[in-house]
């Protein structure tokens, strides 16, 4: 059983706080690290992979510190976010070199196994400089898996992948988790995370905003009050009709026309709105959600 423990960790760069008093434990299975861009996901992964010292707090792998401890890499596979690879090598040469650096007894066989796992056998003898974004991502994955590590850290692994490659990588990550490995990947897309991760940790603006299985996170995100602006043929009538429904928490007529509406139960509201409009003969011209952006979802999580 392998466990990464982050204990009251903060990290600042001069006077910018990137990670603010975060505590979390990453255990076996797949964990998704979810947050908007710039939330501190990459900083957290750098801390967990020993490439950054915490300014305060401790980061440990099974009780061992990760910072200044190169021996932990025997148990950790890292897939960095950055694209750069050794472009002058072929895919196979690159993975073999990684296997050699791990001191594996049979680097060639280990590389072959890892390359087969990520289905790159056909392109393994091409130079990396000719690879597409998705192929680069996969060869990075092979280099991280070549020593069969119990811990796998992936920074934005789905970036730049086409849908088919995405599905394949999701499948691979799920398998890794099911095998009992401790797998952590970061993403800024909720749908991506909830398809793969059992456990989700949400970070926003350097803070640990929420933690739980995807059902709990999904509920947190959809149960929040939703705001809309409606334009209808008869705003006053529509507003009074909607106010009578329990899914609506408040409605206000705007001076410039239209209704500002706050719904508490998004699912019910989206079903009730067209029905009520039809029953009362009010034509709906426009329904615009005003805070649907991911950032607003995240900021709601932080404030709750």
């Amino acid at each position: 059983m392998t466990e990464i423990r982050i204990d009251h960790v903060s990290r600042w760069f001069r006077n910018v706080v990137a990670v603010n008093d975060v505590s979390m434990t990453i255990g076996p299975g797949v964990t998704g690290l979810l947050g908007p861009n710039g939330a501190g996901k990459s900083t957290l992964i750098a801390l967990m992979s020993g490439f950054l010292a915490p300014s305060a707090g401790t980061v440990t792998l099974d009780g061992e510190p990760l910072w200044r401890n190169e021996q932990v890499y025997r148990r950790v596979g890292l897939v960095p976010e950055r694209e750069a690879l050794f472009d002058y090598l072929t895919g196979r040469e690159f993975v073999v070199a990684n296997a050699e650096l791990h001191g594996l007894p049979d680097p060639g066989a280990a590389a072959e196994r890892a390359i087969a796992l990520i289905e790159m056998s056909d392109a393994q003898d091409r130079e990396i400089s000719t690879y597409s974004k998705g192929m680069r991502q996969r060869i990075k994955m092979a280099s991280a898996l070549v020593h069969d590590p119990p811990v796998l850290l992936l920074d934005e692994p789905f970036n730049g992948m086409d849908p088919r490659q995405r599905i394949h990588l999701m499948e691979l990550i799920r398998t890794m988790g099911a095998e009992g490995r401790t797998v952590l990947f970061s993403s800024h897309i909720l749908e991506e995370v909830e398809q793969v991760a059992r456990q989700i940790e949400v970070v926003v603006a350097g803070r640990h905003a929420a933690s739980g299985d995807f059902g709990a996170i999904r509920r947190l995100m959809t149960d929040r009050p939703n705001r809309f602006v409606l334009r209808t043929a008869d705003d006053r009538k529509m507003a009074s009709v909607l106010m009578a429904d329990p899914s609506v928490r408040g409605a206000r007529l705007r001076a410039e026309g239209g209704i500002e509406l706050e719904a508490s139960d998004f699912g019910r509201f989206s079903e009730v709105l067209p029905r009520l409009a039809r029953e009362h003969g009010v034509r709906l011209h426009e329904v615009t959600p005003t805070d649907e952006s991911l950032e607003s979802v995240f900021s709601y999580l932080v404030s709750s």
């Binding site: 490439f51 190169e70 950055r82 750069a84 690879l85 050794f86 650096l101 791990h102 001191g103």
Partner: peptide, 15 residues
Amino acid sequence: DDGSISYLLAKPVPR
């Protein structure tokens, strides 16, 4: 510069 040194550093090899 391009960060590819991480493939050398993320190994149990003395610096």
